[in-house]
Nucleic acid binder design. Structure first.
Length: 256
DNA sequence: ATGACTCGCAACGCGAGA
């Protein structure tokens, strides 16, 4: 079962890219981030025509996450527990063929000297709590999404350029590492030493110069890691016309 | 040239993204 994650930076602006990715890569599950639209305006028919079920958690203008799946999506949960009053749509979770899958759009947190940074850290604390709960289920879990975290210096083209940024702050990295230490595997880093990025800025020719960063991650519980057969980053979508600034990352799990 | 961004919006410049 192929599970992918992609920050599309507006599902409406990216609809041609999204549809061609679903046709070409044909993932069983695709977690989307940054829909930038309300649930009612999600282009459901186009996606359903390709054989996908859809669960969204959108909002106007900003954020918004979704899970697309060829198989039924059960027991859907929107928002992180403890975040009931938060109007920012950044989390959705559901079960697909016994695999608990979350689509995550973690707050960026910049600039760090504003309230945005503590918001990021407290959001991560709630994610850590939820991730701990999910481990007690003793089932395959895939926490997929845009974490807005550069885990290590090797995950960006120029560590100096990112000093002082919310994506590399010790407080952000330490919380990401707590997810790993409790038992989740960073699927890409755990299974390849390749240097590869998932995001390239629209500005300054970042894509052409490969000035990227690795901030989209698939975190797998032990039960999911045991079933993992392949992991990859699909770079093609980033090089196309009117692309997202992110590109999809995916894993293949051996699920009967 | 050493380089040039892209979304959404009761828009026509601004906030946000990373």
């Amino acid at each position: 079962m192929k599970i992918a994650s992609w920050n599309v930076n507006s599902v409406k602006a990216r609809l041609p890219r999204l549809l061609e990715y679903l046709k070409e890569a044909s993932p069983d599950v695709l977690c989307l981030q940054e829909l930038k639209t309300v649930d009612e305006a999600f282009p459901r028919e186009d996606v359903e025509e390709l054989g996908y079920n859809i669960e969204t958690h959108g909002q106007k203008t900003y954020n918004g996450v979704a899970i697309l799946s060829k198989h039924p999506i059960e027991d859907v949960m929107r928002r992180l527990p403890g975040n009931d009053d938060d109007e920012q749509a950044r989390y959705i979770e559901g079960t697909i063929k016994g695999v608990r899958v979350a689509s995550i759009y973690l707050p960026n947190g910049n600039p760090v000297d504003t309230e945005k940074f503590p918001y990021k850290l407290s959001w991560m604390d709630l994610l850590i709590k939820r991730a701990e709960e999910l481990l007690t289920w003793e089932e395959p879990v895939v926490l997929a999404g845009d974490y807005n975290i550069i885990p290590q210096d090797e995950d960006c083209y120029d560590p100096k350029a990112w000093e002082g940024d919310a994506l590399t702050q010790p407080e952000s990295r330490n919380r990401f590492r707590r997810l790993l230490n409790m038992g989740y595997a960073d699927a890409y880093r755990a299974f390849t030493r390749n240097v590869n990025y998932t995001y390239w800025d629209y500005q300054r020719g970042a894509w052409q110069k490969d000035h990227g960063i690795r901030i989209d991650h698939l975190l797998l519980s032990g039960e999911a890691t045991d079933r993992m057969t392949e992991v990859g980053i699909d770079k093609e979508p980033r090089g196309r016309e009117k692309p997202s600034d992110h590109t999809p990352i995916w894993v293949d799990l051996d699920i009967s």
